[in-house]
Design a protein around this nucleic acid. Structure first.
Ligand SMILES: Nc1ccn([C@H]2C[C@H](O)[C@@H](COP(=O)(O)OP(=O)(O)OP(=O)(O)O)O2)c(=O)n1
Ligand SMILES: [Mg+2]
Ligand SMILES: [Mg+2]
Length: 882
DNA sequence: ATCCTCCCCTAC
DNA sequence: TAAGGTAGGGGAGGAT
């Protein structure tokens, strides 16, 4: 039927066997299938050509861990290499890096670079991260299918869908032994250990080994028990990567609809292929894979992805199989349900309990019944799959929704130093992966495997054994990929766990709510919030009119609004309804420094030398002399914001300071009543939220006096640098004195009166203080900014977690801390001193919030009193079996 | 209904 | 001795 492939494969002969006869179900075995292969082609021309071939780490920082040297490391233990002649070039990359000195040489207790070394040697890490490397390597070519090239003969006939599924045979073994013909017929497996008592896992076993019942995932001791002469070979991740690349190069060459499944497996939609016969195409592809890689692949051909995948199983090893539509029913009838993709041991077990072990039996159950029992989608899947129905389409890999790293092996800790070091390394890994993928994340989940109280040392060496799975998560307002932010977050999250570190058997950090790095500055920077009045008004409308806020995100910020942000005449910091037109000038690139004479020398000189130096640089070195001049004059510049000098009446009337002064400041906001208090951050978004005291100077002194000594000292430390607060220290230092020389605006805001528990005050101080500082900062920055609109953004976009179960204090601080970070990124030098003060205060407060886990004991009762036993809602406990 | 969050399950 | 990761699908249950 098929004589020749059109192109380079004229040696292909497998033809006849491939015709869809024989009841439409064809299994072409190796002997029939394989063409005469020059003996040398298996062994000779696919040698690793050099180290650079292994350097997959350059593709992407994701692959930390598969660098050339380690990737093919054949470790020192001679016995492990038993199957391989010593003089063979295979061991050129051998290196012995393992110290056998210690008690537990492969635990977090001993190795400071444990995470890195672990990932270098983890097969699951390799296959788990492969997809991202593929994404990167074939990004341009797989970015949507190009139909034109695939439809060369589409004008003629509308073909029936034809799917090919290709999968390499015993991939990890095949790649390693491809140059060792003497091993081809022996039972061979890839494993870290060759010990007959070892608990290392078999990664892949070749087909001779499978005859002994050896399977991937099995302990090597069990494999050896079944087959004592089983040959164990080492991993060679660099070689796997290289063969996978060759594999996909070939697939892409023959088909433009390729869906990668894994490093050794893909679906092809060959409906519109130039090659009319999918079976011929499959054989051509398989031959080319063998010629190029020296490894065999099997293929399944069918009308849909499900049947193609099942056909591959039948085809293996080194064969191909076509399942015609007529044969689908017969094929499935006796097929164990467990074989269907998507049915794992849990689902299979549930079905078995209902006497359902084959697809034929499954078909008897009604769809409704299946959906009721297993859920709508799963029920649908079971019903369809048992009939060979699969409506999925071959498609490109979608952009990733989450990125994470975890280690559940070799994890043993003695103290929090150990855990901190480990978490830092985990953060490093995750940060690099985020950067490698060009994304930032907003949601972070820390997972911990905790040894069950009744579980002893695991059977598996350095394994996790029987564990509870615990997790906490948090969402921050500003997406990040930065190591230090990640560390703060993980430290905080870790604090939520109440756990004896010695019980920890594994930890992982997962990041979701990913945003593209390229788009983030446009979308999320503070700059983007300082949009022109007209845009802002439009958005305000949206916020009030829409109940679904998320829709708005994408529409924010026309490019035209950017770069027209800054105003030298500030509008009010706090007023949600002000329709002030902002004079606008300046842009992110061209930040205009305030004139030297606008700087408050009193503030400047109170800054640390390095910051002064920095500002001095900004002014081309003129600042120093300016300061000297002022010092000699002994006349401080009088330009105070609060004096409202040189400010238009309109602006003045909007300024919070003025509003307070003239008793127009709406202090009467209430956060619920006494019986049902509403926390500030969970209060409904309204103007009131923005109506806070306009600066820390409004804080009621009696409240300040209540604060713990160390917190007061912190505040004191910052006060001198802030003009508005210059008069406060006296009151703080002399709490008994009445408030002469008190700040300009002493609040009667009820938020600050009364005598609530101390932690509440700290919380309020941090929230209100930060908001106030922000209001002030914006005012001084010369930007028009409606604080309420910022807050609305934060709340409406749900960038601040409002759920009970997260610590509001932490949330407020981390939220605002991120804001300040963004603010700093803008490098608005106008207000560097305020920013500096904010940063330091935030940092201190944030450090406190990190302590949450430690002070948990004192706070928890309050939280529980407020929120009931549900507090800790983010603490999720579930179980995992060994 | 449709969303979101916190899990478990699955595949390689 | 030994490297039990990774990411998407989807169910349960609550909020809207
Ligand atoms: N539990 C597992 C499953 C797979 N793998 C690795 C080794 C395999 O070689 C590779 C590909 O997985 P396959 O399921 O395709 O298995 P093989 O290619 O080894 O065998 P087969 O011929 O059945 O495809 O992934 C692994 O390390 N551990
Ligand atoms: Mg395979
Ligand atoms: Mg596979």
């Amino acid at each position: 039927m098929v004589a020749n492939c059109p192109e380079q494969c004229d040696s292909t002969e497998q033809v006849d066997q491939c015709s869809p006869e024989f009841d439409g179900l064809l299994h072409v075995g190796p002997t029939e299938m394989i063409l005469e292969m020059p003996a040398c082609s298996v062994g000779s021309h696919c040698e690793p050509k050099g180290a650079e071939l292994y350097d997959i780490s350059r593709l992407d920082r994701i692959n930390t861990g598969f660098e050339p040297k380690s990737s093919s490391s054949c470790q020192a233990s001679a016995s492990v290499c038993s199957g391989i002649p010593d003089d063979h070039n295979f061991k050129e990359s051998s290196s012995s890096r393992i110290s056998l000195a210690s008690n537990q040489p492969h635990s977090t207790l001993v190795d400071p670079d444990f995470v890195e070394n672990y990932f270098k040697n983890s097969r699951l890490h390799f296959i788990g991260t492969w997809r991202n490397r593929y994404r990167k390597r074939f990004h341009s070519s797989s970015d949507g299918f190009r139909d034109k090239s695939s439809c060369l003969n589409a004008s003629a006939v509308v073909h029936k869908t034809a799917i090919i599924h290709v999968d390499m045979d015993c991939f990890f073994v095949a790649v390693v032994i491809k140059n060792h013909p003497e091993l081809q017929d022996k039972p061979v497996a890839v494993c870290h250990s060759d010990s007959p008592r070892g608990t290392a896992e078999i990664s892949s076993a070749n087909y001779p080994a499978r005859d002994y019942g050896i399977k991937a995932g099995m302990f090597v001791k069990d494999a050896k028990a079944r087959c004592p002469h089983l040959v164990i070979v080492h991993y060679d991740f660099g070689a796997y990567e290289k063969v996978a690349d060759q594999f996909y190069d070939i697939l892409h060459k023959h088909c433009n609809k390729v869906q990668a499944v894994s490093c050794d497996e893909a679906f092809l939609d060959v409906t519109n292929s130039r090659v009319e016969d999918p079976q011929l195409l499959a054989s051509v592809i398989r031959k080319e894979i063998l010629d190029t890689t020296g490894c065999t692949a099997s293929a399944g051909i069918a009308e849909n992805m499900l049947m193609a995948r099942l056909a591959t199983k039948t085809a293996k090893p080194d064969g191909q199989c076509y399942i015609s539509p007529e044969k689908v029913n017969d094929y499935l009838c006796e097929l164990p349900v467990r074989v269907l993709p998507g049915i794992g041991h849990v689902l299979a077990e549930k079905l078995k309990k209902r006497q359902i072990e084959t697809c034929g039996r499954l078909r008897v159950i009604s769809k409704e019944s299946l959906q009721k029992e297993f859920g709508v989608k799963t029920g649908d899947m079971l019903w369809n799959y048992s009939r060979g129905i699969d409506n999925r389409h071959v498609g490109v890999i979608k952009e990733s929704k989450s990125i994470g790293a975890e280690v559940n092996w070799g994890v043993r800790f003695r103290n929090t130093n150990d855990t901190q070091r480990f978490l830092t390394n985990l953060c490093k890994e995750v940060s690099l992966r985020l950067q490698g993928c060009g994304v930032l994340g907003r949601s972070f989940t820390l997972k911990i495997k905790k040894r069950r109280s009744d579980a002893g040392e695991p059977i598996k060496y350095m394994g996790h054994g029987d564990c509870e799975n615990l997790s906490h998560s948090i969402t921050i307002p500003m997406a990040t990929d930065e190591l230090d932010v990640l560390q703060r977050i993980t430290t905080k999250l870790f604090g939520y766990f109440q756990i004896d570190v010695e019980d920890i058997r594994g930890m992982g950090l997962q990041v979701s709510k990913l945003e593209n790095t390229d788009n983030v500055h446009q979308r999320n920077s503070i700059l983007s919030w300082l949009v022109s009045t007209s845009t802002k008004d439009r958005e305000q409308e949206k916020f009030t009119n829409h109940t679904k806020h998320n829709d708005i995100v994408g529409e924010l910020n026309c490019e035209g609004d950017r770069g027209q942000l800054c105003s030298n005449h500030a509008g009010p910091s706090v007023r949600s309804d002000a329709g002030l037109s902002a004079g606008v000038s300046g842009s992110r690139q061209g930040v205009i420094l305030p004139p030297l004479h606008d700087l408050d020398v009193g503030v400047i000189v109170s800054l640390p030398p390095d910051v002064i130096a920095e500002i001095n640089d900004m002014y081309g070195g003129e600042l120093t002399s300016f300061i000297s001049k002022y010092k000699s004059d002994m006349n401080m510049p009088a330009m105070s914001v609060d004096s409202f000098e040189g400010v238009t009446a309109e602006e003045k009337e909007c300024h919070p300071s003025y509003l307070v002064q003239s008793n127009k400041f709406p202090f009467d906001i209430k956060y619920g009543d006494e019986e049902t208090p509403i926390r500030p951050f969970s209060a409904p978004v309204s103007e009131n939220i923005a109506v806070m005291p306009s600066s820390l100077s409004q804080v009621d002194h009696s409240v300040l006096q209540q604060l713990p000594q160390d917190l007061r000292e912190d505040i004191l430390e910052f006060l001198p640098a802030h003009r508005r607060l210059e008069s406060v220290p006296d009151a703080l230092l002399n709490p008994s004195e009445n408030q002469t020389g008190s700040p300009q605006f002493v609040s009667t805001n009820e938020l600050w009166v009364g005598n609530p528990p101390l932690w509440v005050d700290k919380f309020k101080l941090s929230c209100c203080g930060m908001l106030n500082l922000f209001a002030e900062m914006y005012y001084r920055s010369g930007h028009t900014c409606h604080l309420s609109s910022i807050l609305q953004r934060l709340f409406c976009e749900q960038r601040v977690p409002l759920d009970v179960g997260t610590n509001e204090w932490d949330d407020a601080v981390s939220c605002l801390c991120e804001l300040v970070k963004q603010y700093l990124e803008l490098k608005i030098q106008t207000d560097i001193e305020e920013v500096y003060v904010c940063i330091r205060l935030l940092r201190r407060l944030n450090e406190r919030s990190k302590l949450f886990g430690l002070v948990c004991d004192s706070i928890l009762p309050h939280l529980q009193a407020s929120f009931g036993e549900n507090y800790g809602g983010t603490l999720n406990v579930s179980s995992v079996k060994d």
